[in-house]
């Protein structure tokens, strides 16, 4: 299992390095100079690909970061969380900060195993606190969206 994981890691890094290197060809140096905007990215992308290659060949088995077991269910759960955040990013401006934040916190509390009453309480209370800290104290222009008519 570990072998495959390092192989995947290495291959992904090589691919990303190659893509970045290809992108760097687009940054032509201005006329008369030997190196321009693409010079540094080329070094970085080569380094990335090289480290990928080393990981691929090295199959180093010792790693201090704890070993992760990931199954289909885990992937689905992470994807669900990502979907919730994406929806939030999309809804923030049109729907507004208050409605989207209550919805996100409500869903996230249930997602992390909280009970229905605690999700209700937490989402409303935390949104009120966030409103107070960010809007009232720090004067951040939080979008009101649908609630614009009642904004203060």
């Amino acid at each position: 299992m570990q072998f495959t994981r390092d192989a995947v890691t290495g291959l992904v890094l090589i691919a990303a390095g190659a893509a970045m290197f290809a992108g760097a060809w687009g940054f032509d140096p201005p006329a008369g100079t030997a190196f321009g905007a693409g010079f540094f990215p080329k070094i970085v992308s080569s380094g990335m690909a090289l480290s990928g290659l080393l990981i691929l060949l090295g199959r180093e088995r010792r790693s201090l970061t704890e070993v992760m077991r990931i199954d289909g269910r885990g992937v689905a759960r992470v994807a669900l969380l990502v979907a919730m955040i994406v929806l939030y990013a999309l809804a923030l401006d049109p729907v507004g900060f208050h409605i989207s934040t209550v919805a996100l916190l409500f869903a996230a509390t249930l997602f992390f195993g909280g009970s229905l009453p605690s999700a209700l309480l937490l989402s409303v209370l935390a949104t009120a606190v966030f409103h107070f800290i960010f809007y009232s104290i720090m004067k951040v222009a939080l979008p009101w969206g649908l609630l614009l008519p009642v904004a203060w």
Binding site: A16, A37, F39, F40, S45, G52, G58, R62, S63
Partner: peptide
């Protein structure tokens, strides 16, 4: 503590992120 190749990889990922945007030379 991590293997050198993986720490290098991490560094280069960070440097790659730093490459995004208007470049400092031209």
């Amino acid at each position: 503590d991590a293997p050198p190749a993986k720490t290098f990889a991490s560094l280069f990922i960070g440097l790659a992120i730093a490459c995004v945007g208007i470049d400092v030379a031209v």
